[in-house]
Structure formats: structure tokens, C-alpha cells
Design a protein around this nucleic acid. Sequence first.
DNA 1: TATATTTGTATCGCGAACGATATAAACAAA
DNA 2: TTTGTTTATATCGTTCGCGATACAAATATA
Lengths: 150, 150
Amino acid sequence: MDGRFKLDNQLCFRLYTASRLITQAYHPLLAQHGLTYPQYLVLMALWEKDAQPVNDIAKRLMLETNTVTPLLKRMEAEGILTRIKGEKDARQMIVRLTRKGQGLQDKLLNVPEAVGRAVLCESVTPETVPGLFTMLDDIIRQLKGKQENA
Amino acid sequence: MDGRFKLDNQLCFRLYTASRLITQAYHPLLAQHGLTYPQYLVLMALWEKDAQPVNDIAKRLMLETNTVTPLLKRMEAEGILTRIKGEKDARQMIVRLTRKGQGLQDKLLNVPEAVGRAVLCESVTPETVPGLFTMLDDIIRQLKGKQENA
DNA sequence: TATATTTGTATCGCGAACGATATAAACAAA
DNA sequence: TTTGTTTATATCGTTCGCGATACAAATATA
């Protein structure tokens, strides 16, 4: 009973909750266009660089391909992107945005700002966010490193 | 193309990734005892206060009852807890730890420390963690407040 | 007391996450 | 060339997470 199991002392519980709640804040904005948050992440990855193999997208989002493949298939079914076997390497599936997928960028222009505003508060401001980013990036790098050594 | 859609600028993507990776760090430690991370959260809630109705557990974890109910049923099937209809209010299901559920606390004593160590890095130290907690708590409070006004 | 509303929990369906496993293409070694 | 290994994706099964909905018990109102 030394408080080591208290929820209030847990970093992970905070990250888990904050992540869920922000995703919920995205929900109405994305659902309007038939998108989920992970699908929005895929779009951002492809807006940054179109025509990527599944593996590159998975690595960019730090997800496994067995998460990404079904995600991409659903988006393909929605006409947001295409999945075509690579010419150079027939094992790869090259993912490309359709016109619809490209067009979604304009329709979602207001989303980042809206969510950004929703999150701003006492201790989270344009001044403090960079520090928060540094800590989260460090945690991510740290844990990514550990699992590669495993 | 002003960078507003760049993954590298997204707070939510960082929280989402950090949360997933820490949960993955818990995985081997918990799976050893047949537990998942959300189940571990339920245990912590009940170790803090046993004999709670479903709703209180859900509120404590900031989850919906439709997430918690099946979770509790699985844990009941594992013999970790019991779900018994409330006497005072027959709508409530009172959740109580079994001896097995109580005993898990001793078996998991090393978990918080192990995960704590795994997360420590350059910018995340015993000195900086309180500040990180403040920011995450603020974000959570902020978003919780907004959804109540909706 | 009868009726309406609220509250606590559960059910259903879908989309992630992810461990484990399978499969085919590419590549390396014998 | 044959065989073995690695690599890129996909399939399968289980557990969340959550919106929508259902239902019975409790409470409020008429």
C-alpha cells in the first residue's frame, strides 16, 4: 500500500486517457467525411508522400502491417486510395491516393486548428507545447529502441 | 502545404503512439498473469476501493460502461472478480475482487517500477514527470469538460 | 396510483491493435 | 539450379473502444 498502484500516479493511464479523449474530439470532424482517426493518420502520411508501399506507411505510423492492411482495404473500398502491386518488387503493394483522397485535404483544412484550440489550456500553450513534444518524442524513441533490441 | 497536416506537428499522434508503446511495454509483464492492460486498470481501481458498481469503475477509468461490462465479464470468467446485483439498488452490479484478484497485487508488485524504468530518458526524469502530469491532467480535464457541455 | 422520465447496465456492430501464423516473391548460398 | 533464408503482405482470432440501442429498476410527475 505504498501508492505505487494508484491510478493517479500512472503515466500510462494519463497518456491512454488523453489519447482517447483527443481522438474523441476528432471524431465528429472526421466522421462527417466518413473517416476514423487512424484513417486520418494514413491520409496525413500519404499527403506528405504519395505512392508508398504498405510497409513505409506502417513504419511512419509505428503500426504493424496487420493493423494497416485492413485499414487500407477499408479506405480502398471507400474510394480514397488504390492498392496496386509494385512493378519493381511484386511483393509490395503501392498505395496511392485517388482524387477523392487528395481532395479530402481541402475539406479537412479546419480540423488541425479546431482540435488544437480544443486542447489549449492553463498549462498547455504555444510556449509549453514544444517541451511536451520533446518529452513524448523521447519516450517514443526510448521504447522503440528497447523493442528493437528484444 | 503549410505543415498543418504534418504528422510531426501532431500532439494527438504523439499521445496515441506513446500510449500504445507503453501499453506494449506492459504486455509481457501482464500477459504472464493472463491480464491485459485495461484489465490491469480495473484491478488498480478495485485495489483502491473494492466493491464498486460498474458505473463507478467506468467513471474512474473514464470509459463507457459498454466497454467496461464485457471487460468485467471476462475477468469474472477468469475468477478475478465477482459481479453481484446490488441489494439497495437492483440495477447496479457490484464488482468485488476474489481472493485471486486481491492476490494479483502481490504478484504484480514489480510492474510499476519496471515500466517506470523503461520510460525514463533524457527529458523524462523524476524532476520533469510532475510537469508532464500537470499538462496531461489539464488536457484531460479540458476535454472532459467540453464533452459534458455537449 | 398510473404514467413518464431518468438511471444503471447490457447487447450489437464495426473498426482498430496486435500476437501468431501463412504465403509468395526476392535474394543468398550451396 | 536447387535449397534455404529473408522480406512484404495478408489472414486469423481475441480484446478493446465506442456509437447506437434496448431494457428493467428507480424516481419523478400527474
